[in-house]
Design a protein around this nucleic acid. Sequence first.
DNA 1: CCACTAGTGCGACAACTGTTGCTTTAAGAT
DNA 2: ATCTTAAAGCAACAGTTGTCGCACTAGTGG
Lengths: 208, 208
Amino acid sequence: MNPPPNGPPDRRPGGRTARVRAQVLEAVRAELGEHGYEGLTMEGVAARAGVHRTTVYRRWQDVGGLLADVLDAAGEDDWAPPDTGSLRGDLTALNGEIHDSLVVRPSIPQALMAASFRSARAANAQQRLWEDRYQRCEAIVERAVERGELPPDTAARPLLIAATAPLYHQLVLLRTSSEPHLAAQAATTAALAPTAGAFARPAPDVEP
Amino acid sequence: MNPPPNGPPDRRPGGRTARVRAQVLEAVRAELGEHGYEGLTMEGVAARAGVHRTTVYRRWQDVGGLLADVLDAAGEDDWAPPDTGSLRGDLTALNGEIHDSLVVRPSIPQALMAASFRSARAANAQQRLWEDRYQRCEAIVERAVERGELPPDTAARPLLIAATAPLYHQLVLLRTSSEPHLAAQAATTAALAPTAGAFARPAPDVEP
DNA sequence: CCACTAGTGCGACAACTGTTGCTTTAAGAT
DNA sequence: ATCTTAAAGCAACAGTTGTCGCACTAGTGG
């Protein structure tokens, strides 16, 4: 566990301090899982972590601080986007992963997104995590370009967003019942669109 | 103003009761505007509405109840999707409206979406509002079909979602800085995709 | 091993949140 | 005009949340 990028740098990274942080972050995840976001309370986290209330308040200030720390910790993994050998396959697999992470109850990612509405610190952390994830996903587009599936001037980010946004939209915002073909549908649409000329990089603006 | 679909039916729809409801709902919108969602408190709403705390608690129970009522009231307007004469034009104009409503600070729609994460009642109301809006938007697709811009078996909902989801995704979840061409880009992509065969209705599943 | 001190535990406190019983007001019916 | 009663006002209350000063524990460096 590393020091949180938000708070002051840990001047005592060893033993108890690190242990307390680990306990608290684990408690946050557990509480999120059991009671969802609305049930996440400083008191509850402290109790579950076996730590005094004041300790949590002093180191993380509020619920947003806790979640920001959890979010930062989430970005420190070694996740890589799927590599199936085709653009459509990659996007479909990616959407499958997203789908699964969002429909599991309770869904930690959902809870974290909800949280980022309430706290500026959590929102910043969430934004860093999104950026990191989409950054890694650009590999999918690069591979597709190398394979000749996409023109070299394809803008990766809009394509990735077109592929994944419908899934988030339906599952997080609309909260419609999860249709199984949802992931494949959005991925296919995004994979097809470039053949019709979408996602060409802005380049010199041709239209007046 | 009509009785809220959630609470018990107003047994006394006249005079004071209706006036109190109007004052309170207006206060909710104003507070949302000034302090955002996190700053929305029962106390503050009651004070601004010139009404006693207990009144608000008794009729709406909690913040979620208040927002659910606001959401239901929002669906009682006569909004209609833009009609520009072309599919791409309609979708672009629609996205333009969405864009504007989301980048205005403070954004009431954003606040309401945030709220629907915390309260089941607000979530249900939000879901009803989404359904109503997308229902009305299907007219865009129907007109495009009549004009021959789209094949008759086009599934309206996935197309509309493909067109609008990227906008919500970027502005609500990713919170990236609002790029001006965002609305047009997503609309164009969605309008182009059907020419490559996307959005055909599920029909008999052709692939094994 | 000892000294220093960041970090934690503890208890008391004020502020805020939501509830309850009762009183008062006024809408709707006769 | 009068009566009935739903709905709003009021005040007191318990529970919760966040803060503060002080004591203590245990990393860290000599």
